[in-house]
Structures are given as structure tokens and as C-alpha cells.
């Protein structure tokens, strides 16, 4: 019984080329600068955050107040943090349900049109080029109840209608922000899909058409499955982006009113920096990191693995 495995080992050993240390040194030399930067600016801060998260510490002076897991217990018993976490999840779900299908639909449409393809591609991609802060400021004006674009349009359609303030109502603020997020990012996903579509050989779809496939069937059974790796990547980026959302929300609402649009990142900023609770803020950062890291691992292992093989 032991024979085959022994043979496998010897054959593997026989196949393995001798280690050339000079080459190893060269590789290490090239990797070292990047590795030092990565460790110093990524791994070390992560480790520091984990360490800080076990203390009650205001960020000034020495850390002397060890309080174990109390920061974590406090986070998950705080309805504002749980609310922020749920807002992130709502953003994830809405992005997957609306933003990505919209992007895919537009990518498919753009492939179909005969002229102006580059023009539309550029127009749709334009919002993504704007900085998030500029986007936030512009949309704040659009949503303004006093003379903002939306209210001005509503007044044209229905004169005498009371002013609406979508950003000021805890019930609508998250959805109003989601509209902006979609406006900002759909172009990015659309470009990903367009690139993916260009990689699908035309012959396959042609063959399907000759075999009597309707266009819908071709889309359902040929195009979308062949676009699979792009869709999986786009979902991955969208989920991670939605989990870490900060800039746009901070500019437009600072997480308010009454925390109705707080995300984990705005909550982290408010507590860690504005309230001088760096230990607690670090605990939030660790939670955010674990959620993103956990999702990443699982998704890479079970969903995206086939794209690498």
C-alpha cells in the first residue's frame, strides 16, 4: 500500500530542480521593499488595532486601562452600531439587486447599438471619475428642499406640492443615498461588463442563433454564463465597497439624521476620533476588518476559485 505514495514522493523529489540561492536572493531583493511597506502600513496597523481594542483609551497618553472584550460587548449591545451594520447590509443587498443588474443591462444595450457606443460609454462612466466629495456636495444641492433640483422639478409637475427633504427624513435618507451611490458606481460595473462581453467570441452566439436560439435564450444560456467570471468579480467588489462605505455618506449626512444613515465606517470615525474613544473605535475597526476579511475568504474559496483554475 505504501508503495505508490513513496514512488510519488521520490518522483516529485526527482523532478524538483536544485534550489538556486542566487535567484532566491534576487527575488527576495525585489520583494523586500514591497513586503516592508505592506507589513509596516497594513499588517502592523491591523495588529495594533487589535491590541488597542482591548483597552479603554482616549488616544492621548499611555494605555493603562485594560478591559478585555468589553469594547466588543458594548458594540454589539449598542443599537446605533447594530443599526450601522444593518445599513451596510441593506446597501449590499440593494447594490446586488438594483445596481449590478442596471449596469449589466446597460452594458448589453451598449453592445447592441450601432453608433455612439463610445459616447454612451463615456457618459455613463463619467460619474465614477468624479471624486466622492464632489459627488456628495453636488447631490446635497440636488436634494436641497429650498430650491434644489428635485424639488424644482416636482414643483413643475405638481405645483403647490410641499417641499420634500429626502436627506432629512430618517425613513428615506438611506434610499436617497443609495440613489447617489448607484449613480456614482453603475458606470464602473458597466465598464467591467463591457470588457467581459468583448471577451465572448461572437461565433458562439452566432452558432446559437443558427441553432434556433431566441435572443433571450442566447442571453440566458450563452452570454450570461460566459460572463460569469466578470459578474463574480463585480459582485465581490460591490459587496466589499458597500461594507466599507464612508466618504459620500459623511459629506452628505454625516450618518444622520438620528444615525439613520450611519455605516460601520462613519460610526467608527465618530466614536474613535470625534469622541476620543480610540480603544472602542479600534474594536469597531477590528469588527469591520473581520467581516470584510471573512467575506473575502469565503467568497474567494467557494465562488471565485473556479475563475483562477
Amino acid at each position: 500500500m505504501a508503495q505508490p505514495s513513496t514512488r510519488a514522493i521520490t518522483s516529485a523529489a526527482a523532478r524538483r530542480p536544485p534550489i538556486r540561492w542566487g535567484k532566491v536572493a534576487t527575488i527576495a531583493g525585489f520583494l523586500l521593499p514591497a513586503a516592508i511597506i505592506y507589513m509596516g502600513l497594513v499588517l502592523l496597523p491591523v495588529a495594533q488595532a487589535v491590541y488597542y481594542s482591548f483597552f479603554r483609551w482616549n488616544g492621548l497618553g499611555p494605555m493603562s486601562n485594560f478591559n478585555g472584550l468589553a469594547n466588543y460587548a458594548r458594540a454589539f449591545s449598542d443599537r446605533v452600531f447594530v443599526g450601522a451594520l444593518s445599513h451596510n447590509l441593506i446597501l449590499v443587498v440593494m447594490s446586488l439587486a438594483f445596481q449590478l443588474p442596471l449596469s449589466l443591462g446597460l452594458a448589453l444595450l451598449i453592445r447592441e447599438i450601432r453608433w455612439g457606443r463610445a459616447l454612451f460609454r463615456t457618459i455613463f462612466f463619467l460619474p465614477f471619475v468624479l471624486s466622492e466629495v464632489v459627488t456628495g456636495v453636488v447631490w446635497t444641492f440636488i436634494y436641497r428642499p429650498q430650491g434644489g433640483l428635485i424639488n424644482a422639478l416636482l414643483k413643475l409637475v405638481a405645483p403647490g406640492m410641499p417641499e420634500t427633504a429626502l436627506l432629512a427624513d430618517p425613513k428615506t435618507v438611506l434610499y436617497a443615498l443609495f440613489v447617489v451611490i448607484t449613480w456614482k458606481f453603475f458606470g464602473y460595473h458597466m465598464i467591467l461588463y463591457i470588457a467581459g462581453l468583448q471577451n465572448i467570441p461572437h461565433e458562439i452566439e452566432e452558432a446559437a442563433a443558427i441553432d434556433g436560439c431566441s435572443r433571450l435564450q442566447a442571453l440566458r444560456y450563452i452570454t450570461i454564463p460566459l460572463l460569469g467570471s466578470t459578474i463574480r468579480l463585480s459582485i465581490y467588489l460591490s459587496v466589499l465597497g458597500s461594507l466599507q462605505f464612508f466618504d459620500l455618506i459623511w459629506v452628505m449626512t454625516t450618518g444622520g439624521p438620528v444615525s439613520a444613515s450611519d455605516t460601520m465606517a462613519t460610526y467608527l470615525y465618530k466614536y474613535g476620533f470625534q469622541r476620543f474613544q480610540l480603544g472602542y473605535g479600534s474594536a469597531i475597526a477590528v469588527c469591520l476588518f473581520l467581516i470584510c476579511f471573512g467575506f473575502s475568504l469565503v467568497y474567494q474559496r467557494f465562488v471565485m476559485r473556479r475563475d483562477y483554475e
Binding site: 436634494y143 428642499p145 429650498q146 427633504a165 429626502l166 436627506l167 432629512a168 435618507v173 444622520g256 438620528v258
Partner: peptide, 21 residues
Amino acid sequence: FQTGSLGAGYGDQQVVMANGQ
């Protein structure tokens, strides 16, 4: 309060007051 006061910053408050609204 003025419409949308929960979404307005102090800068908006200034504009509303300064212009007699």
C-alpha cells in the same frame, strides 16, 4: 423649523436667516 432642518447644516441655517426666510 424650515423644511429639511434635520438634513441642514449650520451653513444652511445661516443662509435661511440671512435672507429673511
